[in-house]
Nucleic acid binder design. Sequence first.
DNA 1: CCCCTAGTTTGGTCCTACCATTAGCTGACA
DNA 2: TGTCAGCTAATGGTAGGACCAAACTAGGGG
Lengths: 255, 255
Amino acid sequence: MIHESLFTPAQVGRAGEDVALQIEAAILNEKIIPGEGLPSERELQVQFQTGRGVIREAMRALKQKGLIEIRKGAKGGAYVKQIDVANVSESLALFLKQQHVGLADIAEFRESIDRTITLLAIARADAAEKQQLVAEAEKLRECLEQPEPDMWTLGEIDRELNIRLAKMTGNPIFEWIMQALQLGFSSQDYALYEDPDYRQKTVENWAETARHIATNEPLRALSSIGAHYAMLQRCVEEAGSSRKASAQSETKQQS
Amino acid sequence: MIHESLFTPAQVGRAGEDVALQIEAAILNEKIIPGEGLPSERELQVQFQTGRGVIREAMRALKQKGLIEIRKGAKGGAYVKQIDVANVSESLALFLKQQHVGLADIAEFRESIDRTITLLAIARADAAEKQQLVAEAEKLRECLEQPEPDMWTLGEIDRELNIRLAKMTGNPIFEWIMQALQLGFSSQDYALYEDPDYRQKTVENWAETARHIATNEPLRALSSIGAHYAMLQRCVEEAGSSRKASAQSETKQQS
DNA sequence: CCCCTAGTTTGGTCCTACCATTAGCTGACA
DNA sequence: TGTCAGCTAATGGTAGGACCAAACTAGGGG
């Protein structure tokens, strides 16, 4: 539990900020460990010598940052938690939405990340992991050949394939970046999956890429990835010109 | 100004979340344009049929997300603003801090991004931009040769060089990612700059890389970058083994 | 021994009052 | 007439109290 003198009374004017900063510092310096919790709001109110509203606003800010989780009822209160990568993703997605980022720029960035990840995965992952990747890519193909291909399941497996490949680099940052990208642009991805031509080619491309990774052929793997993104670009251009104008304007409005 | 019926009364239980979500949706759908503002807290209190504390907590959350900025006094209130990339950076930095990410992983990621950016910059930037890059790298070298090299200025120019190079890709995402990385790991970067050997070699490496970019020699440029990160890795290893233990433990504690 | 109810803790909401800051206006003075 | 000090109103920031709802705890009854 928390020692009594961990926090000092808040200053006037920016009391809310002050409280939030003090608690945040305590968390980041590991004065408070993830898992167990802060005093109750009424107790903090006394420690900081401030009103309860100030404490509540600080808590809301910390919760928004992903630093704490709040539970109601007895034994409730604020509990320090591990920040989830979803917080970063949400922040990133919000930013990209408001900046009107085009799909082309996003695709280019994803392609560059994919290439790097693929090379690292080939160099570092062991044979078993590579075989698992091939197996999952095959599962994706089987899933498509079902009489009623479930769009959501397809997207989910595609997502898992990307994450699995990123994990194989051995560097967690790539996995996180990939998760952030997936979460941030899931809407666009799903929209593309509506196109049956894109579906078919993507699935086959995944199987091909996985095979080349498993057989340690980096150049062929990169070639597959390049083909995939070239195909994606064609689909985007087609969608932008031929599809109904409402979808286009909506994309413009939201991205 | 805001239409009267934009918001609907908040539900009980999670009124704060509800209010925040409604306003966030209004902002993202561009029902409210960046630059001009929401009604006052007391007005929103009426529109949402809720207490003022709820409104304030929602505002705090939106402010934390970077969606609004709050001004005091008459004509004050919440004004919608363009999300700054610094918000994403802060979120990312917080996450990486709590995950105990090692410098080696970060460096590897940065190296991969640097390579991609360099290739794109060589392919797309015009000669004038490349010449400016060379000039700025020269400025960095001059700055180092001063009798009293200002550490902060050096770091600042280094940062600007990275941003400038990222801009030259023509894809804003690379610029943002670079900014996020810079802001997120500035502390580690500055610590490395304390080493005079690292300083010297980094500055020379920048000049070399810029020259190769200006003369459109991608392979040589990549080679320079590779050399830089190999050198960085040596410095990190040395610092980890020979430097005083307190710095090491502090790094462990904070990263 | 198990289940169910009452009590206690704690976050969630509402309200009211007051303070601090700021923009805009008003009026006196040069 | 122009300018600037001072006043006023609008608005966010803080304080404190009261009550509700949810959730854990313990004690009593089956």
